[in-house]
């Protein structure tokens, strides 16, 4: 290949570039198909689907939400004996043999009283791996791999519930007909203030934190919403089971598998990570190139 032909190739590519052919192509060929239909109805978070809330008149505790989006089932009472053994082995050193929060030789009030909290609460704490606690004095228990199996957790829940039967029971959400869009809107209104809109969680007051939602299974999302573990508020009659189901659908799809169409998600931290990338990778890399361009010869 001669130098002249090399030069010609170089010139041609430059001409092509200066012609800004690519740019003309975007504008000329791009297909801006707008699927947006113009309506004026305002729709925020799904239509209010009626759910008959049944409340225990003596305690004010919600018994059921009277619909089929989520099935709540009490753990089988037959498991209670196994559950008691498991409880004495794994839980009683803090919560006491009576599950009342008073350990042997301990004072009451140091540990939570579990009597009457309902099966869903017991199940959530055990199945999210937070209990039995790695460090009982920690301000907040971290999510870990569960120590007990699903059946063992249900057994413990069955025994504790047998001491003072209560609600809510262990839920099973049915996500087939869930509306992910309504779930997104409800998530933004009710959940994002603590867990962030990306579901990553963040630091809260007094060394507490809102946990990430990236690895939480669907039924535990329901348990957390309905029971309000730790510092999380309980969402009871103000969210119907239909709405909870929609939120669960959103969490288990878009939060846990976000559509990062634009490239690397940068950890969901948003502008902080973007700033670092822009300054270090953008300006930094360009300054390095600039070092090469402008270096004295």
């Amino acid at each position: 290949m001669t130098a002249t032909s090399l030069k010609r190739i170089a010139m041609l590519s430059l001409v092509a570039l200066f012609g800004m052919g690519p740019l003309v192509l975007f504008i000329g060929n791009a297909n801006a198909s707008s699927h947006t239909t113009f309506q004026t109805n305002r729709k925020n978070a799904g239509t209010p689907k009626s759910s008959t809330v049944v409340v225990d008149p003596s305690t004010g505790v919600v018994i059921s939400y009277g619909n089929s989006a989520i099935t709540y089932s009490a753990p089988s009472a037959a498991l209670a004996t196994v559950g008691q053994a498991l409880f004495l082995q794994n839980c009683a050193s803090c919560h006491g043999t009576e599950a009342n929060g008073v350990p042997a030789n301990g004072t009451s009030g140091a540990y939570p009283n579990l009597v009457g909290v309902g099966p869903a609460t017991i199940d959530f704490w055990i199945e999210s791996g937070r209990m039995p606690a790695a460090d009982p004095r920690a301000i907040q228990a971290n999510r870990r791999v569960a120590r007990l199996t699903h059946k063992q957790a249900l057994a413990v829940a069955a025994w504790v519930n047998s001491l003072d039967p209560s609600y809510p029971d262990v839920p099973t959400p049915h996500l087939k007909n869930a509306n992910v869009s309504d779930g997104a809107a409800l998530f933004a209104l009710n959940c994002a203030a603590c867990h962030t809109i990306e579901g990553d969680g963040d630091a809260l007051a007094a060394s507490t934190y809102s946990p990430s939602l990236r690895n939480i299974p669907a039924f535990q999302v329901v348990e957390a919403i309905r029971t309000g573990p730790g510092n999380m508020p309980r969402f009871t009659g103000n969210l119907s089971d239909y709405q909870v189901r929609d939120i669960v659908k959103y969490v288990t799809t878009e939060i846990q598998h976000p559509q990062n169409t634009g490239g690397l998600g940068l950890g969901g931290l948003g502008p902080v990570a973007e700033g670092f990338v822009g300054l270090l990778l953008g300006v930094g890399l360009l300054a390095l190139v600039g070092f090469w361009v402008g270096e004295r010869q």
């Binding site: 799904g46 809330v53 309000g228 309980r234 969402f235 009871t236 009659g237 103000n238």
Partner: peptide, 20 residues
């Protein structure tokens, strides 16, 4: 009322609940 326009009843919220 909540965001869907549903009136809040005294039985709706348990202790430790929040609604906008």
């Amino acid at each position: 009322v909540d965001i869907t326009g549903r009136r809040v009843h005294v039985g709706d919220l348990a202790v430790g609940s929040i609604v906008t």
